[in-house]
Structure formats: structure tokens, C-alpha cells
Design a protein around this nucleic acid. Structure first.
Lengths: 245, 245
DNA sequence: TGTTGTATTTATCGATCGATAACAAGCAGG
DNA sequence: CCTGCTTGTTATCGATCGATAAATACAACA
């Protein structure tokens, strides 16, 4: 209990507080570039979420709220005006990162029978991996998964339903087969292998920061080449020996 | 400063301390099963490492030393007699988990030209994945990777050198080709895709605890089927159009 | 059986964490 | 300008963290 009342007397120990953020040498009073203090509630909330994603993706969810506030350019208790506690903020991050990413156009692209599947998948995976194969998404994904958050399971279910099942059905249709109501577990795992192989490329690049040997789109091309020829051959062999007990 | 001298008087408030661990109903005084307190230095150190792997794999490296000690059945300061600080213990865990896992027999298996590669890879991957596709190994692996530990990069280099390069060279040899000194980056990424797809099966099962559709060995069979047919077709196509600028 | 060395525990420190209360500053409608 | 609501800050609490020092329990040897 050293100092009694604080009261922050505005004496002349500091310059008049530039009122934006850091010390900007030239004058740039209110225009546009860095509209700092006194945001509206919704703007501030958005900014907290956005910067929190950056911050937690870097250091993990064990990162402190004080350092997070510093990264935001504000003070720590301000966070608690917008979120009741740290975990509520984290939940919000999950929602934004996981579920607000799916583009409606992908649904159409994956099921558009007017173009060959091979071309559609090339476009889809190049676009889809733009959304998830980046340090932020991947690191949040793994931090959450290791914490045992149920939202990860939901995400995997979404991948299987919206991506993998459709790929398999479209593939079989192109082979002249009629896809069964429930997909063969072997086929599902083969599709997961495709997805996982592409995903692991992102792990190597963005989680482990290891040099890779090809740019993303070339990797996708090769992965799809192998998948198309390989899965085709599996289907052929299955047709030749249908009832192999 | 409540109680002054503690002194732990051996009064009759407890039974005479079974001296092993928990309450074992029957008598089993010193033989072998659970030799608890007063371990030799090397035994204690080994046990600390082993139980720490379990503990940190469960909760991550942010887990507290007190709870770790509880999991060990000892007290927290004891850890600091065997490791100068928490990070030294973690480094030891990395070493044990990452580098003391490679079996010498795998080297031979992967390069043994007297058997078809397909059969060798089936055996290798079933054995190799026994070692790494389990909750402990995978979770330690990801916790470490997200912390940015350099040992992960070393591990990836080891995988590429000891597994993937050999697979590619053996594959090409079986196709009647002579493997180049430096492998084609496309081939390396195709091999990484195989590895990553198998690995991601483990991620789904043991990190995200999601149900999978096939047991491990069936998944390996399918993955190798697709890889062999798919990579073969890639090599064929490359031979037919060698100088495709 | 007493001595001695080591394994183990009790008690505690300083730093840091999430969270809260109380206060100050910005911005609108009169 | 003043008044009142909202945004933002200062100061601080209690819990918990990693780590250390001092005291104690155990075991082997004399």
C-alpha cells in the first residue's frame, strides 16, 4: 500500500499524448490509416477476435491476456468488457476459424457434373487449401485438437460429408458405377488418405516450418494424379474380384 | 506460520504405512511388483521420464510440475533433484520419444532387394506405425512441433532420408529404372503424400479421437495399393513424355 | 547399533496468471 | 457548455506457477 490515491495528474512529465498509438514522427491527425482509440463496441470486439487469432496462433492458447492486450494496443482488463472470460474468447475464435470458412461455391463445384471431376478437384483443392493451409488456421486447428475441443470432431465430420463423400460419389459416377447409399469404408479411408496427404503438406510447411520440395499447386496436381490412377485401379480390381471373402 | 515444527510424529493416526504405493489388500512386502519409495537415482530418473511422457502427452507441456509429481506419487521438489528445471526434463522427453525409436531392422527391411517392395512396405508400415501411431507419441510430437522445437525438423529430415528416399529408389529400381542421385522433387512430394496420409489416419484416431472406418493394417494395405498403382502410372506417363517443357 | 550419505519432504519465495472494482476519459443529446 | 452513457485505464486480489533452502526419513556400512 505505498501510494495512496493514484489520480494520474496531467503534469508536464509527458508530451500531450499523441492520441493515436505510437510515436509517429510526422503529423497525421485523424484521417484513416490507424484509427485507434475509442472504437465502437462492435468494431472493438471484431478487432479483439482478429488479433487474438493472430496471437494465439503464434503462442498457443496458454498465452497470457496481458501480452494479448499489448498485441492489441490496449490494456488487459478491456478484454473482460467484451468477453466474460478468456475461454469465451477462445470459443469465439473456434467458431470464426472453423465454421465461417466454408464457401458456398465449393458445394456447387464439387457436384457440378458438367465438368470432369479431375479439373474440379484441382480447382477445389487449390482454393480450399488457400483457406486452411496457412500458419494461422493450422496452428489454431492443432492447438484446439490437442486441448480436446469437440469442435474438431465436428470439423472432421464436415470434411467427410461435404468433401470426401462427394469426391467418392462423383468418381464412381465417372467410372460408370452407381454409388451405394453407404460408402464402402475402404473408399472412405482412401479419400481420407488423399485429404490427409494434402493436409500434411501444410503441417510440414506451416506447423513445422520445414522446406518442401514443390509449391502447393504442383503438390496438389501430383496428389490428384496418384489418387485418380490409384483409386481407379482399386475399383477395377474390386470389379474383377467382387466376392473376395 | 501455523504449525511450528512439523516433525511428522509416527503416532497411530495411520496404519504403519504399507511402504509400497496404494493399499494392497494382501501382503507383498519387498519382492518386485511395485517397488515404490526410496528408489535408486537412476531408477527414479527413469521413472520420472516415463511418467512425464504419459503426463505431458495427456495435458501438454504447460502442465504443472505439482500435478506431475502427484502423477508420480512423489512431491514436486523431487523433480528438481533430477533435472535442473522443467525444460531440461522436457528436452529429455524429446530425446527419448523421437530418437530412441528407430529400429535398426527397418534399415535392412527397406533396402532388402530379395523380396518385393510391396510386401516389405506392408511389413514396415505396420511395424513403424505401431511405434508412432499411438496417443503418446503423436501428442508429444504435436505439442513439440507447435512449440517450435528444432528437434521436429530433425525428425522430418530423418523420415525423408531413411524412409521416403529409400522407398522411391527401391520403387524405381523395381520398375527397371536407375534412380538418379538427387531425387525428383515431384517424387519426394508423392512419397511425403503417402507418409502424410498414413500419418493423418493416426491424427484422426489418436489426436482427435474420431472414429475411423478401417483398422490400421487395412488402411495401410489400401494406401499402399493406391500408391503403387498411382505412382507407377505417374512414372509411366513421365517416360512417355520425357521433355515436357 | 550408531554414523554418514543420499533420497525425499516441508515450507516458502517471487513472478505471473485470470479476473474484478473503482476511477478517468471520450462522445452524444440537451 | 453540461449531463449522462459508454469506452478505456489504474490498481489490485487470490490462485498458481517454477524454483530454492532447510529439515527429515531412509538405507548401507562401520
Amino acid at each position: 500500500m505505498g501510494r495512496t490515491a493514484h489520480s494520474r495528474k496531467p503534469d508536464s512529465s509527458e508530451p500531450p499524448r499523441p492520441r493515436t498509438a505510437a510515436a509517429k514522427p510526422a503529423q497525421s491527425p485523424p484521417p484513416a490509416p490507424a484509427p485507434k482509440r475509442r472504437l465502437s463496441a462492435s468494431d472493438r470486439r471484431r478487432e479483439i477476435v482478429a488479433k487474438s487469432i493472430e496471437y494465439f496462433a503464434k503462442v498457443g492458447f496458454e498465452g497470457g491476456t496481458r501480452e494479448l492486450a499489448r498485441h492489441l494496443g490496449t490494456t488487459q482488463p478491456l478484454l473482460y468488457r467484451y468477453f466474460p472470460n478468456k475461454d469465451a474468447l477462445i470459443q469465439e475464435i473456434y467458431k470464426v476459424v472453423y465454421l465461417d470458412q466454408w464457401k458456398a461455391s465449393w458445394d456447387h463445384l464439387l457436384t457440378d457434373a458438367s465438368r470432369p471431376l479431375r479439373a474440379r478437384l484441382q480447382i477445389f483443392y487449390e482454393d480450399y487449401t488457400d483457406a486452411i493451409l496457412n500458419p494461422q488456421w493450422m496452428r489454431i486447428y492443432f492447438f484446439a485438437g490437442l486441448k480436446g475441443v469437440s469442435i474438431n470432431e465436428r470439423y472432421l465430420a464436415l470434411v467427410e460429408e461435404r468433401i470426401l463423400s462427394r469426391i467418392l460419389r462423383e468418381f464412381q459416377r465417372e467410372c460408370g458405377l452407381v454409388p451405394p447409399e453407404r460408402l464402402d469404408p475402404h473408399d472412405l479411408e482412401i479419400a481420407w488418405h488423399l485429404q490427409g496427404g494434402i493436409f500434411y503438406y501444410g503441417v510440414r510447411r506451416f506447423v513445422y516450418r520445414t522446406p518442401v520440395h514443390l509449391p502447393k499447386s504442383a503438390m496438389i496436381t501430383d496428389a490428384l494424379d496418384v489418387f485418380f490412377a490409384g483409386y481407379r485401379s482399386v475399383l477395377d480390381r474390386r470389379r474383377d474380384a467382387p466376392a473376395k471373402a
